[in-house]
Amino acid sequence: MGGNQSLPKITPQDRAILDLKLQRDKLRQYQKKIQVVLDREHAIAKAHLAAGQKDRAIIALRRRKYQQSLLLKTDGQLEHLEQLVSTIEFSLVEVSVLHGLKQGNEVLREIHKEMNLEAVEKLLEETSEAREYQKEIGEMLSNNLTLDEEDAVQAELRELQAQQESQIPQAIDMPDAPTTELIAKEPAAEAESAERTKVPVAA
């Protein structure tokens, strides 16, 4: 399998972690089992008591108590195991963080090696030289227009201006102000328009 080569090696640490986790699982399963026993002893004690056998009920309850103490003990052990597992896993994370930092540092150093001051200075110098050169070329080009060409530019400008002016007068072509009297008709027209606006609202 080609894919297998990319998988990390299984280290003794990995095996140790797996061992711990398996132990933890066993404890958890053991706890489950004890819980079942506890419930059963409780039922047995109840049944004995119902049958009037007090002694037997007490024995069952004693057994139950003992199992309960076992459960408590396993709780403590489980806590220890889980702590240990967490600590180990956290340390592994720390190791990988350290490794990451180390690599980052290395990369940074490599980059700095390529970016020494002299090279930067030289580069900046070259850039400014190139900019000067570019500027010179620009100046030479702009001064190089002949008189004829300059005339043509001016003519184009005039033409554009003329176009703009010819558009403006059309916009200002306003209607004449009314000269007749309007007052008498106005209220009727207003009422009519008010009605017209009302109709769609009602619908």
């Binding site: 998988l7 990390p8 299984i10 990995d14 095996r15 797996l18 061992d19 986790k21 398996l22 132990q23 699982d25």
Partner: peptide, 10 residues
């Protein structure tokens, strides 16, 4: 990736 130890697998 499977990992096996004496006690079981992971």
């Amino acid at each position: 990736q499977m990992i096996g130890v004496a006690d079981g697998e992971g």
